[in-house]
Design a protein around this nucleic acid. Structure first.
Lengths: 148, 148
DNA sequence: GCATAAAGTTAAGAGAACTTAACTAAAAAG
DNA sequence: CTTTTTAGTTAAGTTCTCTTAACTTTATGC
């Protein structure tokens, strides 16, 4: 049964990923940003606030590269870069209101397809999907916090 | 209730996307390929076979760009480019065995996290997730075929 | 305190992905 | 059959990312 579930999850994931990656690429282009830039904004949306080193670790790029990407995002008004009060060598970055708005808009575009999908479901199917994804989200959050 | 389901789906999706995008980036780097290159391989994995024009449309790049990317993938042995027998102007590309293997390996790496996630679920939770994702996958396939 | 390590920035240059423009070859239109 | 359109490639040049190396500033180890 577990084998079965893995299979189902993988299939859904492939389908979903394929679609989402294209959508993000198109959105990035329309916003005039590159994928690496969008990725950093997404990371900040997810984490809230981040040190520069965390960025370079997460994306496996050098500090220099992270610094340069951040600089462009600061120039564009998407993020704010401030000194870490606990360690004056370190800088922390976070989304500005503009950056937050951009990511939300991108998410909304990606959501459109899912919403279309959900519309085609019956009420009981919706309920099943709802429950299942709540279970998965909960489990993912637990796993993530235990990883750290 | 529909509102609720949308909300749940969006939350799961954000979490999942954030993780998957990083994983793909890391995989691409470890394979010595760029994201655009990996994206094309994924597209081919999904569609099976593709004309050049379809590539440039899907990724919203010029024909020239698609052609250059394809050339590199041919050089690398990941795809095969042949003349379309129905239209000798056109070329079609498809994954080689090597390209197929690469994409499968990447998928497997991304699946690892999901499998960990599923392991933490109870049997009844697994069953719920299984059913729900089967519903979604089915709906997505229907939607996709009706779009064309 | 002084040497060493760590966080980040800057500069220079390599490499990749685009674009436009010019071109080749085949199909469609007339 | 000639003209025009379509599919794709090639070339030149631009922009962006990323790396290494040199540097600044702050923290840490002894």
């Amino acid at each position: 049964m577990s084998k079965q579930t893995n299979q189902t999850v993988h299939e859904w994931m492939s389908l979903f990923m394929h679609r989402s990656m294209r959508t993000w690429g198109q959105f990035a282009k329309s916003a005039g940003l590159s994928m690496p830039q969008i990725s950093i904004l997404m990371q900040l949306h997810h984490k809230g606030i981040c040190g520069m080193s965390q960025i370079s670790e997460q994306f496996e790029i050098s500090n220099a590269a992270a610094s340069q990407l951040a600089e462009k995002l600061v120039q564009g008004g998407y993020i704010e870069r401030t000194e870490d009060p606990n360690d004056r060598r370190a800088k922390v970055i976070q989304l500005t209101a503009q950056g937050e708005a951009l990511i939300k808009k991108g998410a909304a575009e990606r959501h459109r397809w899912l919403d279309e999908l959900i519309k085609t479901l019956s009420a009981s199917e919706k309920e099943k999907v709802n429950q299942a994804l709540m279970i998965l989200t909960e489990a993912a959050k637990k796993l993530e916090s235990s990883e750290k």
